[in-house]
């Protein structure tokens, strides 16, 4: 691990300002992903700004009937919150499907959104990777690609975003609240927050230098049957091959986002009108333009079957 200086932030505004002022600065909160990558020298911050002391660890009601989730709310606390379990069950379910108990106790809401891909070529510093070393190439294309993305990919990168939580937030139409080094704040719809790889897979979100996530807001409860179904190689503590987050209303309409298939939580609102025609029609619409490899072509079939299972589940529970 490279040496770094360390400070404890005293306010969100000061943290954002310091992040812009000090070269090579990074925020650190749960540390479960950043510290791991620092050990491998994939991340080499010169300065760490510890934001754990900022009072961003509360879940509060908003004026429009939704919730404001502080950036530092731990995954365990978010999943266990009574309001989340009751009104946003898909979020509890997604969080509980991810990581291990130990990791969820440390991992934060903001950090979960900002976690990096688990592409093995990103982790192997002996391999080319456009995300780790822009311009070096992509070893996953033509390599072992069973885990990789099938939609929204580029010639530069076929990595997936590993978060389960983000898939649920995408279904819930959440928004990411931030503060910038100049003290201004903004609200970023979750749909716009993560980027597709394009030619710059190293740039994963629309955050600007120094911009700090302060909260994630949820609109008022969407109702419906809320289901998160994750398919993985082990029954627990594994990243998704494919996951489906769904809110299905009594009239059969619904919203669906997918995990494990793209560089970001994958949702195509225009495809959701085809839900009434069943899993096959919806899958064809939501994965329109997909490009699979011989190793990950199974994901298209798995998406269709998982959605079919989710629709049956929603009907059974209704």
């Amino acid at each position: 691990m490279k040496a770094f200086t360390y400070e404890r932030a005293t306010s969100p505004a000061d943290a954002a300002a310091a992040a812009l002022r000090v070269p090579g600065a990074r925020f650190i909160a749960g540390a479960t992903n950043l510290l791991d990558l620092m050990k491998l020298e994939i991340e080499t911050p010169a300065h760490l700004i510890d934001v754990n002391g900022l009072a961003l660890d509360k879940i509060e009601a908003t004026d429009d009937g939704g919730l404001r989730i502080g950036a530092l709310v731990r995954n365990t606390d978010l999943a266990a919150d009574e309001r989340i379990r009751r009104d946003y069950a898909i979020l509890s379910r997604a969080l509980l499907a991810g990581a291990s108990g130990q990791l969820r106790n440390r991992a934060t809401t903001a950090g979960n959104l900002l976690q990096r891909t688990r592409c093995p070529y990103f982790y192997d510093t002996n391999q080319p990777c456009n995300k780790r070393l822009p311009g070096s190439g992509c070893a996953a294309i033509g390599g072992v690609s069973r885990q990789h993305a099938i939609v929204g990919t580029s010639e530069a990168c076929i990595a997936t975003h590993p978060s389960d939580m983000a898939v649920a937030l995408r279904v819930l139409d959440a928004a990411v609240q931030t503060i910038r080094p100049d003290g201004t704040t903004r609200s970023i719809p979750i749909a716009d927050f993560h980027r597709l790889p394009g030619n710059t897979p190293q740039i994963e979100t629309v955050l600007t230098p120094g911009e700090l996530i302060t909260a994630v807001t949820l609109p008022k409860p969407a109702g419906g049957m809320q289901i998160y179904r994750k398919v993985r190689d082990r029954a627990s503590y594994a990243f998704a091959l494919v996951s489906v987050g769904a809110i299905i209303q009594p009239d059969g309409s619904g919203r669906i986002a997918l995990g494990g298939v793209a560089h970001k939580p994958w949702r195509v609102e225009a495809a959701e009108v085809s839900l009434a025609r069943g899993a096959k029609a919806f899958t064809a619409a939501v994965l329109d333009g997909a490009r699979t490899t011989s190793q990950n072509a199974f994901k298209r079939v798995l998406v269709e079957r998982t959605i079919a299972a989710v629709l049956v589940d929603a009907e059974d529970k209704a």
């Binding site: 479960t32 510290l35 130990q102 990791l103 106790n105 440390r106």
Partner: peptide, 28 residues
């Protein structure tokens, strides 16, 4: 040493955590 095995589990502030994935200076 990468948070995958749990051998380093300790209880901090009443919660179990992977002690390998957190910095000592973060536990003032």
């Amino acid at each position: 040493d990468h948070g995958q095995c749990g051998a380093c589990t300790v209880i901090a502030g009443g919660r179990r955590i992977n002690s390998c994935l957190t910095l000592a200076v973060m536990h003032e």
